[in-house]
């Protein structure tokens, strides 16, 4: 996937027991972002695989002042890429991991 300059990873081990994940996002390459953002700060948040969308979380991060509006697409894409990977990993593992 194209590099957005942002890194999203699991903040806690995925126990596959429910649809809620703890994710952590931070800026890995500030040069790739257009607007102002907080460097060296990780943002931890919960993401529900069934009810949340990356765009909605990105919008709330912009509203909270973590990122500029011009970077919301990159934030949403980074979250989407990670969530897609987690879903694929879950599909490969036995039910309940």
């Amino acid at each position: 996937a194209e590099d957005t300059g942002l890194r999203v990873e699991l903040a806690e081990e995925d126990d596959c027991s429910n649809s809620s994940l703890a994710l952590r996002l931070w800026v890995e390459d500030p040069k790739k972002l257009k607007g102002k953002h907080k460097d060296n700060e990780a943002i931890e948040f919960s993401f529900n695989l069934e009810t949340d969308t990356p765009e909605e979380v990105a919008y709330e991060m912009v509203k909270s002042g973590f990122f500029h509006e011009s970077d919301s697409k990159a934030v949403a894409k980074s979250i989407r890429d990670r969530v897609t990977l987690i879903k694929k990993t879950r599909e490969k593992k036995p039910p309940g991991c």
Binding site: D29, K38, N40, I43, V57, E60, M61, K63
Partner: peptide, 27 residues
């Protein structure tokens, strides 16, 4: 810890903390 800040937006909680030094070196 004093370095962690909690922000609420539209019912979602964001916990802001410094990126671990080890992760910064990776990038």
């Amino acid at each position: 810890s004093s370095l962690t800040q909690v922000v609420h937006s539209a019912g979602r909680r964001f916990i802001v903390s410094p990126v671990p030094e080890s992760r910064l070196r990776e990038s």
